[in-house]
Amino acid sequence: MKKFKRILSILSLGLLTVLIFTACARNNNSSQSGSSSKSTTTKTSKNSSNKNTRTLIVYFSLTGTTKDAAQYIKKETGADIIRLRPEKAYGDYDSAARRGDRERRNNIHPALATNIPNFSKYQTVLIGYPTWWQRPPMIIHTLFDKYDFSGKTVVPFTTSMSTPIGPSQKVIRQLAEKDGATFKNGIRYDNNRSEVRSWLRNLGLLAK
């Protein structure tokens, strides 16, 4: 009888050992599977991340034309985007024209209502604006007053009926270089999207 109990005890112990081993093996496989899944997810996320996360499009738009240009550039680059708004709105076109001319003639830099979070993280800043009297609106001067562009790359784009970008981008270049930034030539957006894509590609900003 004692011998039978001893045999039964040995068999029970063996069975218990097998069960414990099986459970540990399952847990180990589950852990490896979870680890593998996490690694794949991280890799996929890294591969799909946008290379232009350090690029910002900042623009001022009165009638919406420059906004459309900025939105298209965002679509093609995947860059962050923010619209500049003055503390006091410009009102309708005629009011804006009178005020804009007064600001230009008197070198008035209108106060900004817009706050750009984490501006220091951006390496490239594309600045969009309508051309007023062959110049950028004075609110662009305020942008350079308020934020530090040193070490960044500044690229302008403008909208106008016919005025080329040359005179206005000269002003942007002076502002950028005075602040210690690198300047690159911009473009006048006139709905020629092929030209815009080529320009972005040359800048190394085209997302696809």
Rank of each mutant, 00 (worst) to 15 (best):
A113V: 02
G128H: 11
K152I: 00
R99F: 06
I140Q: 01
Q169T: 03
T142I: 04
T114V: 06
N106Q: 12
Y147T: 01
P167Y: 09
R102Q: 08
Q134T: 13
T159Y: 07
T114P: 11
S162R: 15
A113C: 07
I108R: 10
W133F: 11
G128I: 03
P156Q: 04
P164M: 04
G128N: 05
F144C: 02
T153Y: 08
T153Q: 10
K170M: 02
Q123V: 12
A181P: 11
N107C: 02
N106K: 13
K121D: 03
K121H: 06
L126E: 08
P137E: 00
G180K: 13
I127P: 07
T124P: 10
Q174C: 01
R99M: 10
G100T: 10
P164Q: 03
R98C: 01
V155C: 07
S120I: 14
L126H: 13
R99G: 00
S120H: 15
N115D: 14
M161I: 12
R98F: 06
R105Q: 14
G180L: 02
E177A: 09
W133V: 01
G166N: 14
R135W: 07
F157N: 00
W132I: 01
I140W: 10
Q134A: 13
P117G: 03
N107S: 11
D101R: 14
S162A: 14
I172Q: 06
G151I: 03
I127R: 12
S160E: 01
W133E: 03
T124F: 05
S160Q: 04
A176M: 04
A176T: 05
I165Y: 08
W132N: 00
T142L: 01
Q169I: 00
K146E: 09
T114M: 07
T114K: 12
D179V: 08
R102F: 14
S160C: 09
S160V: 01
L175R: 05
I140K: 04
Q174R: 15
K121P: 04
Y129P: 05
W132G: 02
T142W: 10
S120M: 09
T153A: 04
W133A: 06
H109M: 02
E103Q: 14
K170Y: 13
D148I: 06
E103P: 13
Y129R: 06
W133Y: 12
Q123S: 14
S160H: 15
K121S: 12
W133M: 06
G100Y: 09
P164H: 11
I172F: 10
I127H: 10
P130I: 08
F149G: 00
N118V: 04
S150C: 10
W132T: 00
Q169A: 02
G151Q: 05
I108Q: 11
M138Y: 07
I165Q: 12
G180I: 01
A113T: 03
T163W: 09
Q123T: 15
S168I: 01
E177T: 15
F144R: 07
R98T: 13
I139C: 03
Y129W: 05
M161N: 13
F119T: 06
K152S: 03
V154M: 07
P156F: 00
T124C: 04
P117F: 05
